[in-house]
Design a protein around this nucleic acid. Sequence first.
DNA 1: CTGAAAGCGCTTACAG
DNA 2: CTGAAAGCGCTTACAG
Lengths: 341, 341
Amino acid sequence: MITIKDIAREAGVSPSTVSRVLSNHERISEETKRKVRDIMIKLNYHPNIMAQSLVSKTTNTFAILLPRPAEELFQDVFFGELLRGILASSSKHHYDTLLTSTSSTYDEDELINRLVLGRRVDGVILLSSRLEDKLIKRLNELNFPTVIIGRTEEEQQLLSVDTDNVQASFDATTHLINQGHKKIGFIGGSSNLTVSIDRLEGFKLAMNKAQLPINEDWLMDSDYLQQSSFRAISTFFQDENRPTALVVMDDHLAFGILRTMNELDIKCPKQISLVSFNNIPLAQMASTPLSSIDIGTYQLGYTASQLLIKRLTQPSTVLNERVIIPHRLVIRESSLNYIHS
Amino acid sequence: MITIKDIAREAGVSPSTVSRVLSNHERISEETKRKVRDIMIKLNYHPNIMAQSLVSKTTNTFAILLPRPAEELFQDVFFGELLRGILASSSKHHYDTLLTSTSSTYDEDELINRLVLGRRVDGVILLSSRLEDKLIKRLNELNFPTVIIGRTEEEQQLLSVDTDNVQASFDATTHLINQGHKKIGFIGGSSNLTVSIDRLEGFKLAMNKAQLPINEDWLMDSDYLQQSSFRAISTFFQDENRPTALVVMDDHLAFGILRTMNELDIKCPKQISLVSFNNIPLAQMASTPLSSIDIGTYQLGYTASQLLIKRLTQPSTVLNERVIIPHRLVIRESSLNYIHS
DNA sequence: CTGAAAGCGCTTACAG
DNA sequence: CTGAAAGCGCTTACAG
């Protein structure tokens, strides 16, 4: 492995000078710079990054912390898009990205200690939206540069990027109301995620505003649905008093619902209309193309990374800045042409 | 930031001793160990990882190199599953994982130099299956610990993990033949990927073995399909002499085909049967649940990581070991109940 | 069983 | 404009 000393010897200068050439120090003569650089290229020299980190006390790296368990997350294209956004911004700013996940709360603590106290990374992006997240508390205590993708209950001194889920769900619901629906149900995600809670709230707000009744039997969450694997929903669908439209937490879930409807020979959108969230690429390929709220997943990731880098490079950054990424409703067949009764 | 010296002072020992406690050196008395460890915990000490790396000349980190452009890759759940597998194995063995992507060939070179020559990582996992990959050549030259997911043309001194794509495609095609199909088409992926080439080969082998004719008009690749956005395929479907079954490069593509068939009112599987690849979670949620080859994506990632770690920790590892992950055909409606004519 | 010293490959005041 | 020296936070022969 070739080092700064080798270059120095070959160029007939001191290691200090080589180091200064490396950082393009202004008080090094152009001639020396040229000479040293030529030799660097000739010997294919590249500075040892660990050595640089040690003295600069900076790693130019941040970690993406995945909530445990990561299984579900990875199943979703959503996650890939988010990563893509994060990477695009981080590599543009010459930051490396560490991808980390944990399998238990104990591991989480260990991980944070190792990464943060061990000076392994300069900051973290946290993909989490559980209520009462201990990780968040800890990062906040340590005053460690952190961007949360999603919302937390407490007001912390941390940066965050999020969708306005209340508004997004309000918009989705209102769209259905505008299509003439009065009997609308809501199929939520895991009930301890803030995203589920917020979207349910948005749904209720829209229903209230339109002075439509909310039928508790038409509110479900996917914790429940997964166990009973759509049998529950079949029963629900066969009820004579069923909703004519559903707001569904994500496109994958909507696919499952479409499938069940197919089997029961219930037509979408004529008998039951659907609007879901995330607008995955396959949404338009569904047997009935899905209306879906596009939450700008790539943008969410890109902005999170950008915000973190800003925090790391500009000390004046407001410590609890919160960025909301705009969403938009993409209307397709699944919520059109409802036949008014 | 608290260092080994702080611990040493507090414990009344030398920094060397603290370091030895850290690595659980055998010739340190249990009493000293206990004393030092208590203080470490009390002060919440964690060793500076960069300093450790500098002296050990090892980073306990490897990089996942994503082929450029990463866009398509991320669209696919396949990629998420792969990452999940890689992470599961790497975190189990206490390795960190850097996720890197590049946007140009120039960047690729820069990246390799920085990561490899800059001693940023101990090894790389390369997601690539282009023919003639310069990255691969370079890594091979440098004799840098590398695992390729996928196949390359040249025989290199590199480790690799792959699916037997020829066999997988042979199996898919044979399944259709066994269902009574004689007119079978093949919809490939991007034509410069080895995976496309191999699967086409497997398709042809199966057809030949069954002594069925291969109609060149029924062979397409998705480069072509994407531009013409399924209009091409419509024309193709409306031809009187069309195939009764298709082998399709991946589930996403199959969704698009199903959608087109829906529009043209061509029934799946009765009029055209389908078998595709990857078995994404949504495959079973398609309007006609998709028969698909499960290539064990998670396993592919897990094994790649495992192999790399083996190479890094056991110098005796065979340098060009190649692991094939078994595949299996998951049969669903899309390839059943074909009506023999 | 433990300590003093040298060194990993850089950077950066300080001095000239 | 450039060099010698100290130091970043560790590890590890060497010596005792």
